[in-house]
Design a protein around this nucleic acid. Structure first.
Lengths: 343, 343
DNA sequence: ATACAAATTGATTGCGCTAACATTTCCTCG
DNA sequence: CGAGGAAATGTTAGCGCAATCAATTTGTAT
């Protein structure tokens, strides 16, 4: 009999169909419904179909909140990036989600800005959701952040950076190496007097440090540094380059992002400086528009998709085998200097 | 007494500190700890401090999964966009999160691609988390999607589109109106023979339809349409414009995104066509690089930040007052034709 | 047929928290 | 100084699901 008319409900219930409702309609035990939905291979074909029909009839939508509590598996991955308003991080988000979604993981997105304080706050709220895995941008975290991550013992991938002692897994590239490579590249092309325009975030600073180290190693070149606030934008690039050009005689300006470089380019054009004849310009990121600017922007290409892909894959592997391989795994995806028409 | 040495734990427990552990250390009831953390105004100053100290001592991180189950409030907002690899949607994500995070809401991100099927799948998994609110891109949903949204009765904002019968709240602009406005604008400038390069997503198609309607209303102009796949890219723009220019004599090419327009621009330059003298080009979106291309790209500006902001605000209001004002609220944020140097 | 293992289904219990109500403590005022 | 109410705290009982183990059915070999 199917007397589904009366069902007692406490005042705290949400009112929507539950597992037990489906079970009653299908004429099986709640546990069997749970299995039919989550581990169909444990259930006979006939009951599976009956359950399926009952689900449709009741309009049942599983409550994964309850499921997560009961099983201590949230099927949630936290993804923490500074921003999505930057195409490189957007690419990472896009790729990570593309890999995780088919595996049944949902993504809890967190924007940390560029400050450790915000990272700390957001990490706490994120951990309270008990994610099965975390992808975290950067390797420099506050002490509290490191403590929390360690005691949470959640599979973790740090991305977008290199470190000698990652907390768990790591997929990225060395910002210092980028800076050095750019320095060597530009020195080789004969540029000597550099302006540096850098965002005030820690990774951009590492690239600057690498650049300076590159000059020192070569024993050549001099530089002027200007920092800009976040988010980087064309006006920042334009203003700071104007400042630099007004006060110094420069061969080249190196920027911590393509968008800043575009601002520099605009400033150069407004001064009728030939690029790269009178002023060379170097960006960072190889954004989609870098190739389309005129002249086409020289820059450093970072493969955000590769980082996202590998990070997600590592995470999946670790989540599937939580105990296996606790040794840190580090992957350097490298970078590439793209020599277009501004250097 | 503080005999916190032995605490019985079932095999199903996760092992980390719970509310009861904090309560024992603080010497109060679990419920008091819950209140001290979630509704501190209900708790005396002294106990609040004792609880705070106990939290630090135990390293307690609240389990919001359990909290959500018990209270039927997840403090989760689902945000569904086609992609974040497009700066306009990234801007929406950025803004929505910027508004919601300070209010204690976390964001569950879903990428729907541009297909109703994916939207359907993702919506189901999203609903299983029992979000307190949903921001959904677009107004055209499958029947199942509409049913699910209605029976879930979750505060909902549809964005990025206009509709006469929104499911709940709506913040966007009319794609048809964009198409018409572009048609009128270009006709007024004397262009008559148009190429249209459009992505194969429904909203881009509406803009095309609007454009065509604009031509028909004016009784002037002719057009050739080419559709491209997603994601849009410079090569798509370049290839399709080459195809169009090879077979037709055109005054202007209208694209469904700036990145396509950049491809058209590249093709025009490779053919030594003067822009806009021999070929005018129109983009869509006013991406950051539109102003930086050479010549600077004419386009249609959409204020993604405004959409995200208003959508989040509407959602917050509705979530705070679930029963109040069930009447649909619609907001048209409009758009603006940005006339730069390619038209 | 009978015994035994494998496959399938069911009953119980608890994940960690908060709603709802009960109780105690504190304060105010006649 | 005790009544009465407000403020603070405690107790109980789930939220909806899956881990666990028990019970049943099915299949198979002798």
């Amino acid at each position: 009999m199917d007397d589904s008319s009366t069902r007692p409900r406490s005042s705290r219930s949400t009112g929507s169909a539950r597992l037990t409702d489906v079970a009653r309609v299908a004429g099986v035990a709640p546990m069997t419904v749970s299995r039919a939905l989550n581990r169909p291979e444990l259930v006979s074909e006939t009951t599976r179909l009956r359950v399926q029909r009952a689900v449709l009839e009741t309009g049942y939508v599983p409550n994964r909140v309850a499921g997560a509590l009961a099983s201590s598996r949230s099927r949630l991955v936290a993804l923490l990036v500074p921003t999505v308003a930057h195409s490189l991080f957007a690419e990472v988000v896009q790729t990570v989600m593309g890999v995780l979604a088919p595996q049944g993981y949902q993504v809890l997105l967190g924007l940390t800005g560029y400050t450790p304080e915000q990272e700390e706050t957001i990490l706490e709220t994120v951990l309270s959701r008990r994610p099965d895995g975390i992808v975290l941008t950067g390797c420099r975290h506050s002490t509290l952040t490191r403590q929390r991550l360690q005691s949470a013992s959640v599979p973790l991938v740090e991305i977008w950076d290199m470190s000698d002692d990652p907390l768990d897994m790591l997929v990225g590239f060395s910002h210092e190496a980028v800076g050095r490579a750019v320095a060597e590249h530009l020195l080789a092309r004969g540029y000597r007097r550099f302006g540096l325009i850098s965002a005030d975030d820690s990774r951009a600073r590492f690239r600057v440090a690498g650049f300076v180290a590159g000059l020192e190693d070569a024993g050549e070149g001099e530089y002027q540094l200007r920092e800009v606030g976040t988010p980087s934008s064309m006006p920042w690039g334009r203003d700071k380059s104007a400042e630099l050009l007004d006060s110094h005689s420069l061969d080249a300006i190196v920027c911590s992002s393509d968008i800043l470089a575009l601002g520099v380019l605009a400033e150069a054009q407004s001064r009728d400086l030939s690029v790269p004849g009178q002023l060379a310009i170097m960006g960072f990121g190889d954004s989609s528009y870098a190739a389309a600017s005129f002249p086409a922007l020289s820059t450093v290409r970072i493969d955000g998709a590769a980082i996202g892909l590998r990070a997600a894959e590592h995470l999946l592997q670790r989540m599937a085998q939580p105990t296996f391989e606790r040794a840190a795994r580090t992957l350097d995806v490298g970078f590439e200097i793209v020599d277009r028409d501004t250097t």
